[in-house]
Amino acid sequence: MEHQVVHREAIGAEPLQPATIIARNVNVFYGAKQALFNVDVDVPRNAITAFIGPSGCGKSTFLRCLNRMNDTIPICKVTGKIMLDGQDIYDPDLDVVELRARVGMVFQKPNPFPKSIYENIAYGPRIHGLTRTKKELDELVEQCLEKAGLLKEVHDRMHEPGTGLSGGQQQRLCIARAIATRPDVILMDEPCSALDPIATAKVEELMDELKENYTIIIVTHSMQQAARVSQRTAFFHLGKLVEVGDTRQIFTNPRDKRTQDYITGRFG
């Protein structure tokens, strides 16, 4: 308990202007087990924020709170406040379906639906009724593939199964699928952990381009990746947010001893 009081607020967790997501006092419980302790963090708009930390530190759990994916786990309970553009996302009046359309997600393992490439991307716009005509939908699909840098590679096999692509292509397809619902925020849960270095480079390049229009949060266990792509980094340890700040500052001049130990590779 003493720990909890001392690190009530992580170093550098002061409010940020302007912020897309503001989280205050977030606790997460899996049944009787507490997974996150009093997390306070602000996420800046149109930038990439990286969550780093050793495995089991709660970074993915926190990420899944941001679009309420934890709702699908019956024993999971979330307390505290998370605001998206001034709106509390745990407000009972807020619609989770709509929230998830605004906060897209890309998963650790590429999970294209066992359908054609075209259908994978058209799925979101269809269920949300974003297009009125077939032509509009076709255009949207092409735009999304273009943005994901995939259009040239798959142009002539749009109607072949998405599961037939390579791992890196599949993950970019999932990113294209996520942006097709025109989200404000994209959550990426270790998006490159299943990919080879070349594919990883392509996805990172894509993220860099996307940050012009989207707020991106990436969970990664690769510090190099966090340093390469993000502007802001938050370090989690044992369910607590230890330190958050400008990426360059975190990696060059960490203020917390544990952050320093982690980035210098003393544990992890």
Binding site: V97, L130, T131, R132, L140, Q143, K147, T181, L210, N213
Partner: peptide, 25 residues
């Protein structure tokens, strides 16, 4: 690679939070 503005914002497509559509769903 260029980023197409229409997807990002200000788009002729209907807005997401169409309450009637949500009710149907």
């Amino acid at each position: 690679m260029t980023v197409d503005a229409p997807i990002a914002d200000g788009h002729p497509l209907p807005r997401l939070n169409d309450p009637a559509r949500l009710r149907t769903r």
